[in-house]
C-alpha cells in the first residue's frame, strides 16, 4: 500500500516539474468536461423521467464552476499544490464518465431500463430515501462494530494463548485446524437456531469470520518470536507475564495486523450475507429488499454507500496500524 502511494507521489512530482508555467491545464479541461456533462443533463430530454434531474445538473454546474475557480485561484500562485495536480486526471475522467453515463442511459436509452440508471436516478434515491438508508447504515455499523470488536478481542487472546502455551496449543491447534478453514457463512443454518435472535446469530457470524484469521496470525506471530528476545528479557529479570505482554505481543503485532486485515475483509462478506437472512434493517437487507422490488437504482445507491463504508474502514485500520507500528518506519 505504502509503495503504491509512493510511486503515485513520484509521478505527481514529475507532472509538477513538467507544468512549471503555473497553468493547471488539467483543471481547465476538467471544468469543461463537467460543464459538458451539465449541458447534456439539462439540455437534452430524458427518455423517461428519473427525478432529481435538475438537481444533478446543478451539482455538475457547481462542480465545473468550482474547478474553474480552483484553476484560476492557483494560477497566480504558480500552479496548484501537489495533491490537486495529482488528482487532475481523475477530475477529467469523472466529468467524461458522467457525461457518457448520462448519454447512454437517460438521453439515448441504450442500456436496458430497469437494470441501469442514470446518475440522477441514484441521486434521487439519496434525496428521497435517505432516512431509510441512514438507518440501514447505522444498523450495519452496529452489527459490524460489535461483531468485529468481539471477534478480534477473543481471537487475539486465543491466538496469544495458542502461540505461547504448549498445553493450550496441544488441545487448541487441532480444533482450530479443523474449524478454521470452514467459511463462516457455512455456519448460517446452525446459528439461526443456536441463537435466540437473528441479530445474535449475525453477531456470532461476523465475530467468527473476523476472529479466525486473527487467531491464526496471532498464534503464528507469537510462535515465531526469536528465542533470543526471550533470553535477553529473562536475563534482564522479566517474569513470564512480562515476557508475554512486553516481548511476545509487541513482537507479534505486525503479524496480528495482517490477521486484522484478513478478518476485516472476511467480516464484510459475512456481514452482508447475514443481513440478507432475516435481518430487519441494514445495507444487506436493503439490497435484498430492493432487488425483490426490481428497484435496481436503490441497489446501486446502497452499493455505493457500502463501498465507501468498507473502504473507509480499511483506511481506518491502515491509520491505526501505521500509528501502532510506527517503529517499523524505515525498516527495509
Amino acid at each position: 500500500m505504502a509503495e503504491i502511494a509512493g510511486s503515485g507521489l513520484a509521478e505527481a512530482g514529475s507532472v509538477a516539474v513538467a507544468g512549471r508555467h503555473g497553468v493547471w491545464r488539467d483543471g481547465w479541461i476538467a471544468s469543461l468536461a463537467w460543464l459538458a456533462a451539465a449541458a447534456i443533463t439539462i439540455g437534452l430530454p430524458d427518455v423517461i423521467p428519473w427525478g432529481s434531474r435538475d438537481l444533478f445538473g446543478g451539482l455538475l454546474l457547481s462542480g465545473a464552476a468550482l474547478l474553474a475557480l480552483l484553476t484560476a485561484a492557483t494560477w497566480r500562485r504558480g500552479g496548484p499544490g501537489e495533491r490537486l495536480r495529482h488528482a487532475g486526471p481523475w477530475f477529467i475522467a469523472l466529468g467524461v464518465w458522467l457525461a457518457l453515463w448520462e448519454l447512454s442511459t437517460a438521453k439515448l436509452g441504450w442500456l436496458p431500463k430497469p437494470f441501469f440508471s442514470p446518475p440522477q436516478g441514484l441521486l434521487h434515491v439519496y434525496v428521497t430515501d435517505w432516512q431509510r438508508l441512514g438507518i440501514c447504515v447505522l444498523y450495519t455499523l452496529r452489527l459490524w462494530s460489535i461483531g468485529f470488536a468481539a471477534g478480534v478481542a477473543v481471537g487475539f487472546v486465543i491466538g496469544v494463548g495458542l502461540g505461547w502455551s504448549k498445553r493450550f496449543a496441544y488441545w487448541g491447534m487441532p480444533i482450530l485446524k479443523l474449524i478454521g478453514p470452514v467459511p463462516a457463512s457455512a455456519w448460517i443454518p446452525c446459528t439461526f437456531f443456536f441463537f435466540p435472535t437473528t441479530f445474535h446469530a449475525s453477531l456470532f457470524l461476523v465475530a467468527l469470520a473476523s476472529g479466525i484469521p486473527v487467531i491464526i496470525l496471532t498464534a503464528a506471530g507469537v510462535e515465531q518470536v526469536s528465542r533470543a528476545f526471550y533470553d535477553v528479557a529473562r536475563t534482564l529479570g522479566a517474569t513470564e507475564r512480562f515476557l508475554v505482554l512486553k516481548v511476545a505481543i509487541p513482537a507479534a503485532l505486525p503479524n496480528v495486523f495482517v490477521g486484522l486485515f484478513m478478518g476485516l475483509y472476511a467480516s464484510f462478506a459475512v456481514l452482508v450475507v447475514a443481513e440478507m437472512l432475516g435481518a430487519k434493517y441494514g445495507l444487506g437487507w436493503y439490497l435484498q429488499f430492493q432487488t425483490a422490488y426490481s428497484a435496481y437504482v436503490n441497489v446501486y445507491a446502497a452499493l455505493i454507500i457500502m463501498a465507501l463504508l468498507c473502504a473507509g474502514l480499511v483506511k481506518l485500520l491502515f491509520l491505526v496500524r501505521d500509528h501502532v507500528l510506527d517503529w517499523q518506519k524505515g525498516i527495509i
Binding site: S226, A228, F229, D231, V232, R234, T235, L236, G237, V247, P250, A251, L253, L325, W327, Q328, I331
Partner: peptide, 21 residues
C-alpha cells in the same frame, strides 16, 4: 537457579527490541 539481572548476558547480535526506542 535461573536467570537473574545480577548476571547479564550481552550477545554477539545486539538483540535490541525493535519496537522499543
Amino acid at each position: 537457579q535461573g536467570p537473574d539481572p545480577r548476571r547479564i548476558l550481552v550477545f554477539q547480535d545486539p538483540t535490541l527490541f525493535p519496537w522499543r526506542s
